[in-house]
Design a protein around this nucleic acid. Structure first.
Lengths: 216, 216
DNA sequence: AAACCAATCCCCCAATGGGTGAATTAAATT
DNA sequence: AATTTAATTCACCCATTGGGGGATTGGTTT
């Protein structure tokens, strides 16, 4: 049975040292890297080669959510366990979307941490009670809607995506023209191309599709 | 310490009897009602007065999701624990939105059930590992978007909501007029009122707001 | 060289938005 | 009981916006 290599991102020295001690002090776990911020995450990850990353959300410089997003993209096999203290719905939601594999509360006792680490390492999805309650709250209060994934690629050009964003925002063509530094007529031309690619025939349909397909 | 009153909705006789036996056989738990479908849910709930409901999703007649929605609306203090077997994302998502307090897999062992019942009774949100993984998947793959809750009530009338739905669908005014059995001019009149109430000035803004505020 | 596409621009006409006004009905308030 | 408020219905005028077709340029691919 291989040891689980754990990297720690945590700006609080006390917590950092405590985690380090717990992980290195428990058979089956090794702390392979301890970092106080996410500014050099890429080299940090490359050198420490962790199986699991313990990620603090609030850190100086790049925050934990950004770093999580980046690691998930560049190193998909690495499991990330986010640690959170706060009750900010927006932040929890953003953290969920970043693509981590589990969420624990900092107030959880050490043995819970170790359990969670093993759990994510084995492909599980440990979620602390408090976080679970929040997530169910999201759904129960209908603060969340399901969008069909990008099963189809609409092949919008960069410029077209840009225009589409502004359309979703509700900007009129003249306003879009100003913001994009092109003429009114050119905006309209882009819009027409967008409609063709999205298979829609009006602005409102395009906006609906953009939101529901996650293009905005 | 009060006993926890548990009602069971489950169409499978074997499972139903097993649950009944486990719950009544464990100190601290009483099964106060056992039902094979949700068709008479309101009288069932009124008579059995449960603290916690074990709800099967697939039942003849009214399915578990509908019944859950109804109970959550009419009897908010009652906690509902949904039991699921299948892997259908859509169904799990619908179940989450119905407003239940917890989700267990039917494959979980009995002691897990009892734990989950106690957990929801105490305000927790037990989520089985498999369901947790699915939920994180929703968020990680961005198949889900956060909508600001109805923090403000736009006070749209029924008719206006109806028109707004059709606008979101992308119907033109003449088409909306046909579907709503009113004249073109009346549609326009409603639309203007909608814009005033939503504080927007164009169809696309109205559509965006409708989607993001959950009005559609 | 030909075909393609993104990005730019113009014109015609239909659809949409804002203002204003008004009749009927129902509900709420005084 | 009288008044007010709001919802629903309809109408007209007119300016702005939006949709469809067409066209040019420059760059890329075939």
């Amino acid at each position: 049975m291989k040891e689980i290599r754990v990297a720690i991102f945590e700006d609080n020295k006390l917590l950092r040292d405590a985690l380090h001690a717990i992980i290195d002090g428990t058979p089956g776990y090794t702390s392979c890297g301890i970092f106080t911020d996410g500014n050099r995450w890429e080299t940090d990850i490359n050198r420490s080669k962790p199986d699991v990353v313990l990620m603090d959300i609030e850190m100086p410089g790049l925050n934990g959510i950004e770093v999580t997003k980046n690691i998930c993209e560049k190193f998909p096999p690495i499991k990330i366990l986010i640690q959170t203290v706060f009750n900010d719905n927006e932040k929890i939601f953003a953290a969920l979307c970043a693509g981590a594999s589990g969420y624990t509360l900092k107030t959880d006792p050490p043995h819970k941490y170790l359990e969670a680490i093993t759990d994510v390492f084995n492909g599980g999805a440990p979620i602390s009670a408090g976080v679970a309650k929040k997530i169910l709250g999201f759904f129960a209060h209908k603060n969340v809607i399901l969008v069909s994934p990008n099963d189809v690629d609409y092949q919008l050009s960069n410029r077209e995506q840009e225009i589409l964003q502004l359309m979703v925002k509700g900007d009129s063509y003249p306003v879009i023209a100003e913001k994009a530094f092109i003429s009114y007529e050119t905006v309209r031309s882009h819009v027409k191309h967008i409609y063709k690619k999205l298979h829609v025939a009006s602005r409102s349909e395009a906006v609906t599709k953009a939101i529901q397909k996650g293009l905005a």
